[in-house]
């Protein structure tokens, strides 16, 4: 009896496994065939459009000499308002569960391993604006278990796919620049003026600066660059004739934590 029961359970188990695996295969094949429409006529196609700005590797040069508090505030406002970044309020601000894409900090925090002793007082406290570096070798992308964060091979932008992010926050641990934020709660109640052209996020996903990919697609420069009064320059790092390359050829610029081998695409003139 013992034996027959065991055999029954075994068979039942294998049948369930088999049915499960089979239906999964059917599901997969059905999925692929459904993705392409069976209807007649030309198949739908995607394209970039004529207005889109394209580059091999987008990059930015920050001239810290031109930065001051009001410009920094303007840049942050421009960025946060169009991207529906919630205003830090109440408990979330208290607990540092806030979200920021671009923000001003001091030299010693932006460049903690490049300490300059005896820096002039005004230089030491002049704001340095920091954001995602869109590294050429991004450790966050390496760490992500679902490829929810990925580097666009076409233009080097490190992007987030909010639909896919499982909220494990591995990318936040991996980022050596503290550029990433996590939605510890539903951000919507804390967004004052929601921009209908850009989605908000939901609780439980990670977000960060996207180099205004949605604006580049329609031929506009990033919002912070437009609001920067010339302190920020944006362009293709792989094009020797671009504005950023001309500036880099002229001025001595540094990057944050170059020793970590992430190859940031944001440069700082100090």
């Amino acid at each position: 009896m013992e034996n027959s029961r065991r055999r029954f359970l075994k068979n039942a188990g294998f049948s369930i496994l088999g049915v499960g695996a089979g239906s999964m295969l059917i599901g997969l094949s059905a999925h692929t065939s459904k993705a392409v429409s069976p209807d007649a006529g030309q198949r739908p196609q995607f394209s970039m459009g004529d207005k889109a700005m394209e580059a091999e590797r987008w990059g930015m040069v920050v001239d810290t000499r031109k930065l001051n508090d009001s410009i920094c505030r303007k840049m942050q406002e421009a960025c946060h308002s169009i991207h529906n970044v919630p205003e830090p309020v109440g408990e979330s601000a208290q607990r540092d569960q806030i979200i920021k894409w671009i923000w001003p900090t001091e030299f010693q925090h932006a460049f903690p391993s490049q300490e300059v002793e005896f820096l002039a007082e005004d230089a030491a406290h002049r704001p340095v604006v920091v954001l995602c570096n869109h590294c050429d070798n991004p450790p966050c992308v390496r760490a992500c278990p679902t490829r929810a964060t990925f580097k666009r091979e076409r233009d080097g932008i490190v992007m987030m796919d909010f639909h896919r992010c499982i909220g494990c926050r591995f990318c936040m641990a991996a980022c050596p620049f503290g550029a990433r934020s996590f939605n510890f709660r539903d951000p919507r109640p804390d967004i004052e003026d929601e921009n209908p052209d850009f989605p908000t996020r939901m609780r439980g996903v990670v977000e960060k600066c996207n180099f205004c990919a949605e604006r580049l697609a329609v031929g506009k420069k990033p919002a912070c660059v437009e609001a920067s009064d010339g302190a920020l320059t944006f362009g293709d790092l792989n094009d020797p004739d671009s504005d950023v390359r001309k500036l880099l050829a002229e001025k001595y610029a540094i990057r944050r934590k170059p020793n970590l081998g992430t190859f940031p695409s944001v440069f700082y003139i100090v």
């Binding site: 429409s37 030309q42 739908p44 394209s47 970039m48 666009r152 076409r154």
Partner: peptide
Amino acid sequence: TEHMQILDQWRDTVVRDGQRIYVAENG
């Protein structure tokens, strides 16, 4: 029957490939 697949494809193509123009079957 298929709007969810179309939306799925849209979001992947827009977010991941950055292609933001869709030419439909009707041209």
